Computed example of a mutant assay.
Amino acid sequence: MLFTKASEYALLSLIYISQQNDPVDVDSISNELEISKSFLAKILQSLAKDKILNSFKGANGGFSLSQNALDVSIKRIIECVEKKPMSVFECSTSKNDCTKAATCQVWNMFNTLQFKIDDMLDNISLKDIVTK
């Protein structure tokens, strides 16, 4: 499992947005965090589509959290921007995804690791990383 720049930028953006009192526009976030505006806009739109962010159009538009930061897990954020479930190994969530399941000697270890990582990231909220 590799966190991509999209995951990193999503987390940094959400931290920044959560610390603002008013909606924040893409230009401001892009400048503050030194992130490509076009790449950031795609990330923020994904977060808005999945209702992690509210999106406001117009002169005073921008983005704000759509819910309490305590209610948004890191796992949900990462899966939103990566557009797929987190996976330690390609078949770590299901033996059905593995063509070598009958003889695989490492699947149980990867599956156990997957459950631990899922549990950990499900239990870390955006608020947890904002307040640290």
Rank of each mutant, 00 (worst) to 15 (best):
L65R: 01
D119I: 13
L11I: 07
I15T: 05
S92E: 07
M86V: 12
I77Y: 02
F89V: 12
K127E: 09
E8M: 14
T99P: 07
M109W: 06
A102G: 11
S38H: 02
F89Q: 12
K127N: 13
K127T: 15
S7D: 00
I43F: 03
N111Q: 05
T93R: 15
Q67M: 15
E79R: 06
N60Y: 13
N108T: 04
T99D: 15
F110D: 01
P23R: 05
S64N: 08
C98A: 10
S28F: 04
D71F: 06
L121K: 07
A101D: 07
D97Y: 11
N31R: 10
D71E: 10
L70R: 11
V130P: 10
S38G: 05
L40I: 06
D122E: 14
K51F: 05
S92N: 06
Q105K: 14
Y16F: 02
T93D: 12
K49N: 09
I43C: 04
E8K: 11
K83W: 04
S7L: 02
V24T: 03
D97T: 09
V24Q: 03
Y16N: 00
S46M: 09
L121A: 08
A59I: 13
D118S: 14
V106K: 10
S55A: 12
S125C: 09
K83I: 06
S38N: 07
S66D: 11
S28K: 05
C91I: 05
T93Q: 14
T4Q: 00
L14Q: 01
W107T: 00
G61P: 08
N96Q: 13
V88T: 09
E82D: 07
V72S: 00
S73W: 05
S94K: 03
T103H: 10
F3M: 08
N108H: 08
S18R: 04
S28R: 07
C80D: 04
S36D: 11
K116A: 15
L40A: 03
V26S: 07
E90C: 12
D71L: 10
S13C: 01
F56M: 06
E34T: 14
R76M: 09
A41F: 07
